[in-house]
Computed example of a mutant assay.
Amino acid sequence: MSASHIRPVIRRAVRADDAALAELDRRTWSPLHAVLPGPPLEGDPFFDAAHLPSHFLVAEYEERLAGYLRLVTPTPLPANAHVRQIQGLAVDTWARGRGVARALLNAACEDARRQGAVRITLRVLGHNTPARRLYESAGFVVEGILPEEFLIAGEYVDDVLMGRRLTV
């Protein structure tokens, strides 16, 4: 089978993914998408009390961990229970351009629908043009902009709020 016909396998994360996901997070850290001043420290766990394996979808490509997406409820409020929010998407450098991010987004929308959500939202830094294009191509639209919300590497950066309706 040619590489163009290989599809990523998406699954729920498990506790045993911790070290591999932590390493992927360190490798993919960039001021293009991160508001923290630097990558996570070596040895820091990926999962913690607020970031459980059940919150993450993991992509494998050719049996290698290729990326992840975090999908959660945006708030604990019952009035907001119909919404899911993507709070992190990373694809390893070697796996980019192979449909991994698109497969994770599609799986997140399906997972959100299964959970009863009718909307899915995310936040993306205004200067992250590749991510914004990906999200737009997946049906997300800009729903708001918080101008100059972050100061990253000496530059003010907008926080762009995007969302889409999930067809049920």
Rank of each mutant, 00 (worst) to 15 (best):
P45D: 05
L21R: 02
T28R: 07
N106K: 11
R119G: 11
E148T: 00
S30C: 14
R165D: 12
R96E: 08
P39R: 04
G126L: 01
Q87I: 02
G88M: 00
V83I: 13
D158N: 15
D18N: 15
D48M: 05
A138R: 06
A81N: 07
A49F: 06
G116E: 05
W94I: 00
S4R: 13
A16D: 12
R132N: 00
I145M: 09
G116Q: 06
D159I: 07
P37R: 03
S137I: 06
A103Y: 06
E149H: 09
A131P: 05
A3N: 02
L166V: 15
L32T: 03
G126P: 00
L166E: 12
P53A: 09
P45Q: 08
A59H: 05
G144S: 07
A59C: 11
T129R: 14
H82F: 09
A49T: 09
F47W: 03
V91Q: 08
W94Y: 06
L166S: 15
V83P: 02
R114M: 03
E143K: 01
P147A: 04
R133M: 09
N106Y: 07
R164Y: 07
P74F: 08
E155V: 13
I86Q: 00
L151N: 03
G139A: 11
E63M: 00
N128K: 06
V160N: 05
D48W: 10
L146H: 15
A20N: 01
S30N: 13
D92G: 15
A107G: 02
D92C: 04
R64M: 08
F56M: 02
L104F: 11
Y135W: 15
R7T: 01
R11W: 06
L36T: 14
L71C: 00
N128R: 10
A34E: 04
L32M: 13
E148M: 08
D158T: 05
A59E: 00
L104W: 03
L122T: 14
P53C: 12
I145E: 10
E60V: 01
T121E: 13
H33I: 04
L105F: 03
Q85P: 02
S30R: 12
T75R: 14
S137K: 15
V100H: 05
R96L: 01
A16K: 10
D17N: 14
F150I: 01
R133C: 09
L161H: 14
L166A: 14
V35Q: 08
L41E: 12
G99S: 11
D18S: 12
Y135E: 15
R96D: 05
A112R: 09
E110M: 10
N80Y: 08
V58K: 04
L161K: 05
L36N: 10
L105S: 02
T121S: 13
A59M: 09
V142E: 14
V142Q: 14
G154F: 07
E63K: 01
A22K: 09
D25F: 09
R123W: 07
Y61S: 08
A81W: 04
E23F: 10
V58M: 02
P31S: 01
G88F: 00
P45I: 00
S54T: 04
A20R: 13
E136Q: 13
Y61C: 01
R123C: 05
F56T: 04
A50Q: 12
T93A: 15
W94A: 11
R132H: 08
M1R: 03
L71R: 06
V168S: 06
P130R: 08
R113D: 04
A66M: 02
E148C: 12
